[in-house]
Computed example of a mutant assay.
Amino acid sequence: MTVKTGRRWNHNIHYHPRILDAVPDGARRALDVGCGEGMLARELRRTVPGVTGIDLDATSIDQARGHPDDVEFILGDFLTHPFEPASFDVVASVATLHHLDAATGLARMRDLLRPGGVLAVVGLARSTMPNDLPRDLAGVAVGTLHRAVKGLWHHPSPIVWPPPATYAQMRALATEVLPGSEYRRHLLFRYSIIWRKPQG
C-alpha cells in the first residue's frame, strides 16, 4: 500500500516526534543508531548541525546515501565502530534494540553521550498474555485507522520478530542502565525511553 498523505507512515515513524521533541537546545552532534534509510537522521538534521547515522544493512545505507543532504551515513556496527566516547549531544534509536543485546546497546548509547546530552529510544517489546490483550486489541484498532488514512510504508531494513524482551523487562533494564530515565509504553506496540546524562 502506498502512502496517501504524501508522507510516509508506519508504527515507527508515528513515534519520531517523541525523539525529536527530546533534542536538547543547542545540540551540535546527533547519532542515529540503526538509521535504516535515514528518515529520522534527516529529521534530526533540521535542528542539529552534525548528524551521523549508522546501520549494519548495506541496502538501507545505500538508500540513505542517495538523498541530497549532508548527513553522514556509516555502514557498520555501532557497538564496535570507533566513535569517541562522550562525543554526541543526542543519541537516538528507533526499532533497533531488539536486534541486539539490549543492555549492551543501552550502555553503549549512554557512553557515547556528552554530559547533559539526551538518549532517546523508541523500541519494540513482547506482550505478556493475557494481561496485555486489551491494550493490544486497542492498538490493532487504532493502527488500522491510521493505515486507512495514511497508508503503510514498509522500510527496507531486516525484521526481527518476535522481540526477545517483554515490556516489563525493558522497563526494568532502563531503570538499571539509565537511572532516572523516563520509560513510556505506547499504544501502537512501541515503548520509549528518554534519558538525560547527568552533568559532571
Rank of each mutant, 00 (worst) to 15 (best):
T175V: 05
V122M: 05
I74T: 05
P164F: 10
L112W: 10
S87K: 09
S127P: 00
G76W: 05
I74Y: 12
H146Q: 10
A95G: 13
R171Y: 02
D101Q: 04
A138Q: 10
P134D: 03
A148Y: 03
L124W: 01
T104V: 14
S93A: 15
L113A: 11
P163I: 04
G66M: 07
V121I: 15
V71T: 12
A174K: 07
L152R: 12
P179F: 09
S157Q: 11
D55T: 09
D70C: 04
W161Q: 06
A138C: 01
M129N: 01
T80F: 02
V177N: 10
T128V: 15
D70H: 15
H81E: 14
K150M: 10
H98D: 01
L137K: 06
E72L: 13
A148P: 00
V122G: 02
A172M: 03
L56M: 14
V122P: 10
A107V: 00
S157L: 01
D132M: 10
G180Q: 11
A102M: 07
H146S: 00
G143L: 11
T166M: 02
G53V: 09
L100W: 01
I61F: 05
G139M: 05
G117L: 12
V140G: 03
L152A: 02
R114C: 12
D111H: 11
V91H: 07
R126C: 00
T166K: 02
V149H: 04
V71P: 10
T128K: 08
R110I: 04
T166E: 01
A64E: 07
T144V: 01
S87E: 08
I74S: 11
V94A: 14
L152D: 03
R65Q: 08
L113F: 13
R147C: 02
V121R: 02
Q169W: 02
H99W: 12
T104C: 02
L97Y: 05
G180S: 10
D55K: 12
L124P: 00
D101M: 03
P162W: 06
F73D: 05
L137V: 11
G50Y: 07
V140D: 13
T128G: 00
W153S: 10
L56V: 04
S87I: 07
V94K: 05
R65D: 01
E72N: 10
L173H: 03
G117S: 13
N131V: 03
L137Y: 02
G180K: 12
D101L: 04
P130R: 13
G180T: 08
L173M: 15
